[in-house]
Simulated scan of single mutants.
Amino acid sequence: MLQTGCDSTPCGPGLCGAGLRRYESAVAAGGAPADPPVHCATELGLLEPAVGEPGLLSPVTPAIAAGRVLTPLEETLAEGRRRLEALTKTFETAEAVFEGARQRGPQSSTVLRGAHEIAETIDAAVGTAKSELLTAQPGGRRPPEILETVVRRNLELLARGVQQRTLYQHAVWNHPPTAEYIRTVAEAGGSVRTVDEMFDRVIIVDRTVAFIPTSSDYPDEALEVRDPSIVWYLANVFEYAWARGTPVDPAVHRRPEIVVSEIEQSIIRFLVAGHTEEKIARGLGISRRTVAEYISRISRRLGSVSRAQLGYLIATKGLLSEAEGERSPASDPPRP
C-alpha cells in the first residue's frame, strides 16, 4: 500500500489522504466501495460510479481525469489572457488619445523665454482684462521707459472699469519716478499699497491667469499659470500681503511716517537675525547705503557704539517685540 502520511487532510491541491488510498485500492482491485464517501477523489474525477454496479466506484486514468478537470480551467485562463491583452491595448489607445487631447487643449502652465516673448504674452493677457488686475512688484525702482508704457496701459484699463490693485515695497519712495507713477495711478482710481517685505513678482489677470518668475537664476524666464487652484493660491498670497500694506494717498507728496517706521522695524528684525547690510538691502529693495543710514540712526537713538551692542540694546529695550507686534495684521485678509 502507498504510505501517504496524511488522512482526511489534503496531501495536495484538492486531494486528501483517504481519497488517495481509496483510489490506490480501486486501481489495484479494479474497483472500490463507494462508502464511506471520498469526495476529494470523486470531485477530481479519479473515482466514478461503476457502470451497472451500484455502490462501487471505478478508477479513472489520471490523464483522462486531468483532461476533464484542467481543460475547462485552461480555456478560462486563455480567455482571461485574451481579455487582458485586449483591455491593455484599449487603455493604451485611450492614453494616446488623452495625451493628444491634453496637448491640444489649454496648458495649465507654460514657460515663457526671453524678454520679448514675456512682455508680449503679459501685454496680451492684461489687454483683455475684464474686471481685475492684481500686481506685485518687489524692489525699489522701475526703469522710466517701462513706467511710461505701464502707466498708459494702467490708465486705459482704469478707463474701461478694470479694478487695479498694485503692491510695491516701501523702497519705491526713494525713487522719485516710481513714486510719481504710483501717485498718478492712484489719482486715476487705482489702488496702490506699499509693504516692507514682499514675495516675488506676480501679475494676476481676472483670477484666471497668473505670471510668475521661474527662478531668480533665470531672469529671462516666466511661467504663465492657468491652473485654477494655483491661480487661487497666488491671489490669496496677494490678499494676505495687501492686508498688511500701507495705502498710497495721492494727495500726500512725501513718504508717510509709517513707511519709515516699518522699514526700520524690518531692519531691526534682519539685524537680530544676523543678516548683513547687503542682504538686508536685497530683502527690502533699497540700497546698501540706505540700510547703513537706518542702522546708524537706530544706533544713535539707542546709544550703541558697535553692532554687537546694538543687538543687545534692541533686545533689552523691547524693540524686537514691538516690531513683531506691528508686523502682525489685525485680522485675516479677505479670501479671493
Rank of each mutant, 00 (worst) to 15 (best):
E92R: 03
R244E: 12
L223K: 04
G67T: 08
Q265G: 14
G114Q: 10
L56H: 00
R288W: 09
Q309M: 04
S321L: 08
E132G: 05
L134T: 02
L56V: 13
I212K: 03
G114F: 11
T93R: 12
T316N: 00
H170D: 15
P333A: 15
T184R: 15
L46H: 05
L158W: 07
G55H: 00
V231R: 08
E264D: 14
A32V: 15
G114P: 02
T208R: 03
S229E: 15
I263E: 15
A125L: 07
S266R: 08
A222L: 07
K130S: 14
A179M: 03
E257R: 14
S306Y: 03
Q309D: 06
T246V: 15
S216L: 09
L87I: 12
V195C: 00
I64T: 04
S25C: 12
E24K: 04
P36R: 08
E148V: 12
E156N: 06
A273F: 09
E264S: 15
G52S: 05
L47D: 07
A235H: 04
S328Y: 14
S299A: 09
Y168P: 05
A32W: 04
A159H: 05
T290E: 12
R307Y: 02
P37I: 15
S266M: 03
F98Y: 08
A41P: 04
G140S: 10
L73K: 03
Y23G: 07
V248S: 00
R201C: 00
P256C: 12
P33I: 06
E264T: 15
Q309N: 01
G45N: 06
L73A: 09
A50F: 07
L44I: 08
T76H: 12
T316R: 08
G67M: 06
S331E: 12
H39W: 11
R269Y: 06
D196V: 11
V231Q: 02
G190V: 09
S58G: 07
T93Y: 02
G105Y: 11
R81H: 13
L157P: 07
D123F: 05
E53P: 01
I203A: 01
T135G: 05
R102S: 11
S109T: 15
G67H: 09
T110G: 04
P247I: 00
R327A: 14
F238W: 01
L158A: 05
T110D: 01
I146F: 12
L167R: 08
S261H: 13
M1T: 14
S58T: 10
T121H: 05
P13C: 13
L44A: 12
R160L: 02
L73T: 11
P176C: 10
P256T: 07
C11V: 13
E293H: 03
E224M: 13
R307T: 09
I314D: 01
